[in-house]
């Protein structure tokens, strides 16, 4: 738990540092027009850096209690997170419709062991419904890939 606490505090400290750096570029003064562009980000960043240091100190003082994530917990979490990340990567390459069909299909089969007919029906059906709702009725274009281009979309 302590390692997780320290890592998080460290990452947040770094992000706040970035904010402070850009705020300095923008100017952190207070003129007759009120504060400059960087005024609020600067002080927010400084305060956040201080708070992160304090959190890290607290974590060190309190000692190590419990584990952030046990092996038994990690397995199911990764079983959700990794396929979801895969969906995002695939969407970038082959478009949302094909990616979601593959993702839903594989997930149902791999995790749920559902019957093949159900896998096929839902895997193909969900993107089709999505297509009708977004592309057709609401005219919201979603990311598309080579298949859709070939079909003329």
């Amino acid at each position: 738990m302590r390692a997780a606490e320290l890592t998080t505090a460290f990452v947040l400290f770094g992000l706040a540092g970035l904010v402070v750096a850009d705020a300095l570029r923008l100017g952190i003064g207070w003129s007759t027009d009120g504060p400059a562009s960087g005024f609020f980000p600067f002080w927010l960043g400084v305060a956040a850096m201080a708070a992160c240091v304090a959190i890290a100190a607290q974590a060190l003082r309190r000692g190590d209690h419990g584990t952030f994530l046990t092996r038994a917990q990690a397995a199911p979490v990764l079983k959700v997170l990794v396929p979801a990340a895969g969906l995002v990567v695939a969407t970038q390459v082959i478009g949302l419709y094909v990616a979601s069909a593959v993702y839903i299909g594989l997930y149902m089969r791999w995790i749920g062991r559902h019957a093949w007919w159900l896998v096929l029906v839902l895997g193909a059906g969900m993107p089709l419904v999505t297509f009708l709702i977004f592309e057709r009725w609401f005219l919201v274009p979603l990311p598309k890939g080579p298949l859709e281009a070939w079909l003329g979309y």
């Binding site: 979601s100 839903i104 997930y107 791999w110």
Partner: peptide, 11 residues
């Protein structure tokens, strides 16, 4: 079932 609803929610 979980294995149907989860991927649908993520999508």
């Amino acid at each position: 079932p979980f294995a149907i609803l989860t991927p649908v929610i993520v999508v």
